[in-house]
Amino acid sequence: MSASAPELTVDSLRAILIEVAGQDESFDADTDIATLTFDELGYDSLALMELSATIEQRFGVAIDEEELSKLSTPEALVLFVNGMLAEVS
């Protein structure tokens, strides 16, 4: 396998979320965020727009708004993005 795009992980998603939208007291470094909803994690629709724009820039995967609204947890979003990455590679 050569020069394929890196996969998105829950940890890298966490880092991007904090970078583009900050973090409130809903979770901390020890929280397993994979199956919590973005709502439970304190993120609103604008934060998710920031997230999807950043993922598009860094991974080349565009997530349309309708799709985004269905991806309610980090795990679901990571699976979707990696599925798209596998499709194009």
Partner: peptide, 8 residues
């Protein structure tokens, strides 16, 4: 400023 408010 709380972290959540910094980017916005």
């Amino acid at each position: 400023i709380p972290s959540r408010l910094l980017p916005q």
